[in-house]
Each structure stands twice: as structure tokens, then as C-alpha cells.
Amino acid sequence: MIELSQIQFAYAGNQVLGGIDLQVEPGELIAIVGPNGAGKSTLLRIIAGLLTPSAGTLKVFGKPPMEQERNQLARRLAYLSQSYRMAFPFTVLEVVLMGRYAHNRSGLLRLDRAADRELAMAALARCEVQDLAQRRLDELSGGERRRVLIAQALCQEAELLLFDEPTAGLDPKHAIDLFSMLQSECKNKRSVLIVTHDLNLAARFADRLLLLHDGKQLALGPSAEILASAAITEAFSIELHRGTLPDGVTPYVVPST
């Protein structure tokens, strides 16, 4: 589904990313972790086709994303950025319906169809914000807004979901709900790439972790393995206490310094 080989990215002469190798198969949930400024968001934007890598090869669905027509790509790939500011007072339902735009291109005004509305309401219900459908997006709390945007991405029915810190601003219950929802999406042969700072949630739900530090790929592998490795303490420059949940399988870390 995604193939990255020796991807590099430079911005104004500064190397931001170097030597990233990653292959993502259908049904995989991969968490990208690392300290601030490690290049996580840049990597996600490159995969979304919003930035062109300065070197290396990148294929999303078999072709470089920058060479694909945006509308065609949007039917298969949904990207949710870290920051989101809506310039006008759209309602929640209107925002979620935007997820259907790539699928519906008929008529001069390209109006929303009844089927689109049903899909949008179902997506809102999955994110537990269906009661907010007629409210203005800019009137909601940060967490509610985040869940509406996740509903928009779900409404897009893409097979590849790229989420940049989707749990920022979510309370623990909704953060767990989101990860478990994404995990169940992966069972339907969807793939998810998620940038997160929550190592424990990443370890609990992701199949693999990609650890970045200073634009370099420090480690890539099964979550438990990465969490137990020395690379993670090196990347974050803190001492970590490692443990396992009572189930005996799921690892966790807490700072010990």
C-alpha cells in the first residue's frame, strides 16, 4: 500500500528527514513516535502527497502521490492535520459532508446527496458527536472538534488513513475509543498511520512503531520490542520505567527521571 525507500526531505537547505524506509501492508496500524521536531508530521505530509521528497522513492497505491490527481487520491487516502482552523462558520454536518466531496462530482453545484448525508450521520455517530450535527464547528470544544474531523475522515471511506496527533485534546476515554476504532478499521483491510506522543496507547494498539529522532529513522518494529529498546530512551533523552500490564503482554512506560 505504501512503499518508502531512502526518503529524504530538505527545507531551505536544511535536512529535515533522511533515510526513511517503510512498507505498509493493508490492515496495518503503524504509530510514528518521536520527540518534537523529529520530522513525524513532515513524513506524514510527504506520504499524503502534500510535500515532495527531495530524494528517495515513494509509492502510495503503486505511484508517487504527487503525480496522482488529488480527487482520485482523496477517494483512497484521508489525511487529518495537526492544526485545523476553519475560516467560516460551517456546521458540523457540513464539515463532515466535505468528506464525500471526492466521491460526488455531478451537477454544476455538486450538491450533497441523501446517501452522503446518511454516511455523514453514521460517521458522526461512530465518533459519538451525532447530537452536535447542527452546531457550528467553531462553537465546539477542542476535543469535540477533533472527533468531528475524525468523523469527516471516516466519511471519506478511504483505505489509507493518515492522522497527525488525533488524540491531542481528547480525554483518556475518547483517546482509547479512537485507537480501538482505528484498530477495528484495520480489520477491514484499511491501513492507518498515526503520529502520536502517547507511547502507551501506541504500544497497546499499533502493530508496529516507527521511532524518529532528528529526522532519522531510529527504530522500526513491533511495538513491545521498540518500547523495550534502548533507542526509545535515546530518542526522548529521559529515563523510562518499563512494565507490563496485568494481561502479561501489553507493555507500558512511565518517566522515571
Binding site: 488529488r70 482523496a74 489525511y79 485545523y84 482552523r85 476553519m86 471526492a102
Partner: peptide, 22 residues
């Protein structure tokens, strides 16, 4: 009028618009 829907997609910036296919 033809661009009206693309203007909606653009309301959250060009990255968000691109993600929606605009």
C-alpha cells in the same frame, strides 16, 4: 457557482482541501 464546493473545502486551508480532493 461551479467552484462553490471547492471554496468550502478550502475553508480550512490548502492541505485540508487537498485531503478532500480539491
Amino acid at each position: 457557482l461551479y467552484l462553490a464546493r471547492d471554496f468550502n473545502a478550502l475553508a480550512a486551508g490548502s492541505d485540508a482541501a487537498a485531503s478532500l480532493g480539491t
